[in-house]
């Protein structure tokens, strides 16, 4: 038996928003520790890794490990039926071929349940190696989204160049060229508004705008985003999810010819 209760179901709506542009379907692996999802997009350029710890939920029970293959368009249809303030309960029997989503209004006067068929997905699990990154940039997630959106008007690629002075995002194309430089913030009132850079050595890498823009669909999950970069390895874009865990996106760099 699997059962997870979430008082504010808006978190799951935001998670779905954050993954559905990259993935059509995904396996939600449920265990005692929580819910994990790991999947590459169809072109194997990016990978989504989601971790929601069981202790973040208001109630969580998972007697046996359960892998739920879910069509994300179907799940989106169901989650659209929930109010942001509804209490969500997800339930599945062991070895079930369906999962139930129950939404209760705050005053408990409206209760809806939606039964969704699970699908068989033959997804392989990947080991992500521990990496010491040359540069770790933390910045407001809204600022990162804005930069990706603005630069995508100029070209298909964004060059991210990090030194100890700051980080520079550049794009170029038919219209011309665009450069956005962010320095580390000297002092800010709120931690979430800070730009901080931990640099071992400078790094410059090129990434596809399209994927970066898809990652920024997670902006609503966290006020800050962390970018980790090393030469010739995938970029990691991480959004923390409150008391639950995180969503991480890995993106293969573009290779100069």
């Amino acid at each position: 038996m699997f059962e997870a209760r979430l008082v504010q179901c808006s978190m799951l709506k935001k998670v779905l928003e954050a993954i559905k542009e990259l993935l059509n379907e995904a396996t939600f692996d449920c265990s005692d520790a929580g819910i994990q999802l790991q999947a590459m997009d169809n072109s194997h350029v990016s990978l989504v890794s989601l971790n929601l710890r069981s202790d973040g939920f208001d109630k969580y029970r998972c007697d046996r490990n359960l892998s739920m293959g879910i069509n994300l368009a179907s799940m989106t249809k169901i989650m659209k039926c929930a109010g942001n303030d509804d209490v969500l309960t997800i339930k599945a029997q062991d070895n079930a071929d369906n999962v139930m989503f129950m939404f209760e209004s705050q005053n408990q006067e409206k209760v809806s349940d939606y039964d969704m068929k699970l699908i068989n997905l033959d997804q392989e699990h990947l080991g992500i190696p521990e990496t010491d990154y040359s540069c770790i940039i933390k910045m407001p997630s809204g600022e990162f989204a804005r930069i990706c959106r603005d630069l995508s008007q100029f070209g298909e690629s964004v060059v991210i160049s990090c030194t100890k002075e700051g980080v520079k995002f550049s794009a170029a194309g038919d219209v011309g060229a665009a450069n956005i430089k962010l320095a580390q913030t000297a002092n800010v009132d709120k931690e979430e508004e800070a730009v901080t850079i931990e640099m071992q050595e400078p790094v410059t890498l090129t990434f596809a705008c399209r994927y970066l823009n898809s990652f920024t669909k997670a902006t609503a999950l966290s006020p800050q985003v962390q970018l980790s970069m090393s030469a010739d390895v995938p970029l990691v874009v991480e959004y923390k999810i409150g008391d639950f865990g995180h969503i991480r996106y890995y993106l293969a760099p573009k290779i100069e010819e």
């Binding site: 350029v45 990016s46 992500i128 190696p129 596809a208 995938p234 573009k254 290779i255 010819e257």
Partner: peptide, 14 residues
């Protein structure tokens, strides 16, 4: 010009 790399080489299949 640049070509898009893929992730396949970076991660080990468990």
């Amino acid at each position: 010009s640049s070509t898009q790399g893929r992730l396949d080489g970076f991660f080990k299949v468990l």
